[in-house]
Structures are given as structure tokens and as C-alpha cells.
Amino acid sequence: MKMIQCISPKSGGSLEVFGMDVDTHPREIKKRIGVVPQENNLDPDFTAYRNLLIYSRYFGITGRLAEERADRLLRFMRLEEKRDILIEKLSGGMKRRLIIARALVNEPELLILDEPTIGLDPQARHLIWETLRGLRAEGNTLVLTTHYLDEAERLCDRLVIMDHGRILVEGTPADIVRDYAGNEVIEVERTENTVACLDELGVAYDLAGDMLQVFTDHRADDLVGELLDLCRHEAAVTVRPATLEDVFLRLTGRSLRE
């Protein structure tokens, strides 16, 4: 991400943004992108409004144009009431919204977001998702990284799952889920009896802690019946739609990533 933003030097290979090499045209590229960093780096010495004005100035945008844009962006991110409030008085969600507003002062053709909703409460996340979908609907290109797979599922047209710097899969969220986790997931408690029974039936399953997961394409109901009948399984059986999280865990394993 930092290499695309022309902040870190390229570690290898070739990288072009808008058809320009990041090594030779960093300034031209930065002029046309907006960046929402993971950590809050709003300027604590100023109010929300002044933050936007001062940031505009770094792009060479000044005067009436900058002022109108700052007010419009505050309205767009529903921060107009916080216009003259110092940064430290804003909540976490407001700060994130202001950072997104700040990333838009130069009307970027490409918006890069690094974990845009990390650490936010559900209301704040939904508000941010709404605005990001709004931006997408206007035809803006958004590139975002996230560890929240529900966020990726909601926002992305095209998704890349990466692990240790390698691309594992690529496609639309729906396609990826269908291809790598099927339609539905049956979760049952892991007992010796059930394990033996599934082995006997030749049903493929995944172990997930003290649960067993069976990924199916269509016939979830049939299988549930079989499980209950043939295996005389007594504990609870859950059937739920497969999610990106299933894909992610299946592809990257369940061990903790440090």
C-alpha cells in the first residue's frame, strides 16, 4: 500500500499508478490519490474545518475553493456540527470520518483506505460503509485493506485474499465464497462418534476447535438428516450460509498469525 502511495520505495518489480512509474512520478501520482491511513494522523493543533483547509493547502488548493470544499465534505461526512471542534474532542468514529473527508480534498481519482473502520462501534462502521458505497456509486475507485471480512464482502467488487505477501485467491466475494466454501456450512459438535460416522460416510469435513464443519454445495438439508439419523448425533446442529471468513480460515489455516 505504501508503495502505491509513493511513500515507501519500491522493494522490487515494477509498479505503475495511472500509467506512471512510482519512482519517477511520485508527485503527479500523489496529486491524484487520496489516502486514509490506518492510524489517526489528523492535526491535533486545529479544528476539524482547519484540518481540511490546511490539508488542501498541501495540494495547492486555497481560498474560496478550499473553503467551499471543506464545508461540503464536512456535510458529506455528517460532521458539519463538529466544524469548529478541536480534534481531541472528536470520537473515534468522527475522527475516521474526518480522515476520509480529508482524503477527498483533492477530489482523488483513486482512494486508498487502510483498515477504514478499525476499532469502531457498529453505528460508526455502518455510517462509513454507507459513505464509501456512495463514493463507489459516483464512480470513484476505492482500494481498501481490511481484516473484517464482512466489510470486504459488503464493499468490494473485486477481492484479493493475501497471506504473507502472496495472493491466494482473487475474484468477486460471491464467486470466491462459492468456489472455496460452497453454499452452506453445517456445524456440529466434535464427538468421536460423529467423526467416525463421517469418515465412514466419506464426507469431507474441517476441524475447527471443538466443532466439525462440513461445507456443502446444495444438499445441506439432506446431509443434516443423514447426520442425525445415521450418526445418531445428539448435540446441536447448525446450518448457516458460507462466508468469506470460512474461505479465509480454510485458505490460511487456523493457527494464530503473528
Binding site: 502511495q5 500523489k30 489516502v35 491511513p37 498541501y58 495540494f59
Partner: peptide, 8 residues
Amino acid sequence: DAIIATPV
């Protein structure tokens, strides 16, 4: 860090 994400 915030400033160098701009053309500065």
C-alpha cells in the same frame, strides 16, 4: 506522515 501523503 500525513503531509507526505500529499504532493509535499
